[in-house]
Structure formats: C-alpha cells, structure tokens
Amino acid sequence: MKNKKFSIYNSKLRCKSHRKRILDISQTVTAMHAAGAFSALEMVDVIYYGLMKKKKKAFTDTFLMSKGHGCMAQYVVLESLGILNRKYLDNYCTKNGKLGCHPDYGLPGIEASTGSLGHGMGLAVGMAHADIINKINRKLYLMLSDGELQEGSTWENMMMASNLNLKNLICFIDHNGSQSFGITKETHPNFYPLKQKISSFGWECLEINGHDQKEIFSSVNKKKTNKPLMIIANTTKGKGVSFMENKPIWHYRSPNKDEYKLALLEIEKS
C-alpha cells in the first residue's frame, strides 16, 4: 500500500522548499495561517508522497485536511505534485484567484470543503463507510488539528467510526499544543491525557514525532488491529522558523520583510 520508492531524504528537501514557497506567498498577502501549516507539513508530504495509493498517476486514496486553516501545507504539496498548477497559488487570496484560507470542494485535489473545525471527522466517517458499502478498497487519510478535539462533533463521529468498524480510516492529529488563544495545556489542562481518551473510543492509537518523516511513514504499518487508527503526531507550531515556533501570535500572522529574510535563512541552514 505504501510507495516503496519513498525517500526520506527527498521528503526533507521537499519540505524545505514547501516552507520557502509558503513564506514567499506570505509576502504577497497577509491572510495566512503559516504556523499551523508548518506544523502539519511533514505529515502532508509523507501522506501524499509515501502513503496514498496511486493508479495511473491519479490518487485512489483520499486525503482530507480537516484543519482547513492549515491548507497551505496541502496547497504547496498539491502544487509540487502538479495537481494544482502554479497560477492557483500565485493568485492565492486575490480577487482573480480560487484558493483561499480554507480548502474548497471541487478545486483540483480538494475532496471536501473544510475550515469550520469539527466537520472533517464526520465527512471522513461518511466517505470511509461509503467505500465499504460500494466495496471500494481505498484508505481515507484525515488531518485533524488538536483544537478540533474540543469540538463535541469530533468525538460523536469518532464513536461512530469505531461502531462502524472503519478499518480504512487513518487519522493524524497535528498535536502542536498551541491554539489561537494560547497554549492548550495551560488554557485547558484537562484536555489531557489524549491517548487514553482516544483508545477508550474504540480507536487504535499511536504517538509519533510529527516532523520525523521516517516515523510518519512507518506509523501506518504499525497498525495491529482492525480498528480505525489515530496517530497523535507531536509537532511544533511554526516549525522551522525559531521565532515563529510555539508563539500564539503567529497563529494568523505573516512575517514582515526582515522576518521573512531571517526565516528563509533559517530554513536554508536547517
């Protein structure tokens, strides 16, 4: 099921260029959640390049970016794959463009509209169950933000996913621990523990480093049961740019010119 030719080294190179592309775009429009995209970037790259099945160059598996605000990570990966052509990102958030701050269903590579948190899990459960009804052998990869675990609808649907025995559903949580308001363990200490909560809802649950391509790539193979799989991926919000890392102010802020230059230098050196 996985791409045997997947190279960790190439993924690392790609993620450098993805980050640079995102920073470049951040200089043309201010509307962007760059930090949330940086925390999910390695996972999105590995999912598309390493995990999702392809048939005649078209993906047969599905990826949903439930944390719609992190869509810039998905956009740059889709661009690098040639699914979104360059014009789409060049016109990001402009009056001539079609791509905005949240993914819209119907655009190339975008299989559902997301952006309002707590919706992705329901859509994913419905799609994964439909694949079982239609007897289609396909996996559904879902990317949740950790903040979405504060939405009751996410838990309602997690309960349904296990009740429906959706072994074809694989969910990554971008666990960067940081939200718009602040650091989650400070604002909501009882948000934790996560793993026990998830397991008690009938999911198999793993914990990995969400920036380590090797761990991301091998995580899916570690699945031992027929339950839906939840991977808590520990990440750093703003990963790759030191002054953006884990600073709530960067949840929705673009770097100024000087910050942009500094950020590019850091990414080059990493």
């Binding site: 269903y105 299989e111 559902a112 919706h119 899990m121 329901g122 859509l123 994913a124 459960v125 419905g126 799609m127 994964a128 169950h129 439909a130 694949d131 079982i132 009804i133 239609n134 009751g152 609808s153 309602e156 649907n157 309960m159 349904m160 429906l164």
Partner: peptide, 26 residues
C-alpha cells in the same frame, strides 16, 4: 444493514456522515 446508520442521539454526526456518503455518490 450497511445502508442504514443509527448515529444515536448525535444529529451533528448524522448530517456529517451523510455528507461524506454523498461526496462518494450515495
């Protein structure tokens, strides 16, 4: 049995799952 789902007292789930199924052509 596969085409009937009782989400329990979870209406948000009922609609979300239905949307996902419709995205797959059901």
């Amino acid at each position: 049995p596969n085409r009937f789902i009782n989400t329990g007292v979870a209406e948000q789930s009922m609609i979300g799952i239905a949307a996902g199924m419709a995205l797959r052509g059901l």
